[in-house]
Design a protein around this nucleic acid. Structure first.
Lengths: 195, 195
DNA sequence: GCTGAATCGGACCAGCGATCCACATAAGTG
DNA sequence: CACTTATGTGGATCGCTGGTCCGATTCAGC
């Protein structure tokens, strides 16, 4: 890649990052290009679709989250690890308002630039889940797909202005369903802890 | 209203209903107008915004759901009534793909044409919820706003092609959090039923 | 400095919701 | 029935979106 092209690419990523933080992932690509001082065509050649741009932007975050899952797998109790990782996932999406619906679409579209990242993320969650299930902390009748869906639902709620103030509380409610006796969560009614 | 205007209005509603069933609430208004054999301006005069059109279209359904809540309030056990009504709400939204995000936006925007309907719906749910809480069947730390959010989250999941196959299961998971010992729901681990 | 290839961005396209206004028509009046 | 007027209509148009094309520009190697 030519030096000027590389510079443009990096600058575009930086500008896109702040623009998305300000206006969400639906920000007009023209705005990003204008703020970066390049033409729309230049942006679209570096990143042919909005998803490709997001993928380049989010790749580091995705890797962080999967790495975090790997750490938690050995450093924390199964239940704590799962709920802590879920929390990380949900809070992370708040930085990229609107990304949830793209992820939900990408996970079943192999053509999407975000597909691979989403599948990896789901797999990381599934490992934490099965570990917690083996320990008897998480309910048995859900799998990685369910977990991914629950994360997406909570993240979506965080994206909605009317629902966002409740996001933390909703997380607790959902978490209490996945981990009925999770540490730090108040059980809904009286739940007998697993011995 | 003039007779021809009335006829156009009714025809537009009928066409919009089928178009939305086919393509979701994001269907192009131009398409609806064209399929109805009128100009776009005519559609937009009868229904100034997409929300106004949806409000006219959904009003009957909203009334049905609130009426259903009133019935259940006297005919069923508090827990059963709540979970049954939740199920009705969520399955209803599947007929109008994409309506959830509009409802979530409308509930806190008093200017929205859908605002009043959403508030009424939330109030109906809140009544069922407090009744179930008084009976000790529903967890105490949620309110009508939380319930509305949970319905919206489940409905949104049903709208996402990748998540829709799991929608029923996700409903059970969330319901088990709201009503830990709801009849017909298998408790996640062992939960001691309230005496 | 020159040349060829890589890169750029303004001009365009189709689609969207929305608005305007000349025209058509239904409803009321004599 | 004829005439008037208020109402309803829809094609043309606007600004915006994501996306494509191609002539102009700039870089990299010799």
């Amino acid at each position: 890649m030519r030096a000027d092209a590389r510079k443009n690419r990096d600058h575009l990523l930086a500008v896109a990052s702040t623009a998305i933080a300000e206006q969400g992932v639906d920000v007009a690509l023209r705005d990003i290009a204008r703020r970066a001082g390049v033409g729309l065509a230049t942006l679209l050649r570096h990143f042919p679709t909005r998803e490709a741009l997001l993928d380049a932007l989010l790749h580091a975050s995705f890797d962080e989250l999967t790495a975090k899952a790997g750490e938690l797998e050995t450093s924390s109790a199964p239940g704590d690890a799962l709920v802590s990782w879920l929390r990380d996932c949900v809070t992370w999406t708040t930085e990229y308002r609107g990304v949830t619906v793209l992820m939900a679409a990408a996970i079943e579209d192999p053509e999407s630039a975000l597909h691979a990242s989403c599948v990896t993320l789901r797999a990381a969650g599934a490992r934490l889940l099965t570990r917690a299930q083996a320990a008897g902390t998480a309910r048995d009748d859900i799998d990685g797909d369910d977990l991914f869906a629950l994360i997406a639902m909570l993240a979506w709620a965080g994206d909605q202005p009317a629902l966002a103030p409740r996001a933390d509380h909703l997380f607790e409610v959902v978490a209490s369903a996945v981990l009925p006796a999770a540490a730090g969560q108040s059980a809904p009614l009286r739940t007998r802890p697993v011995s």
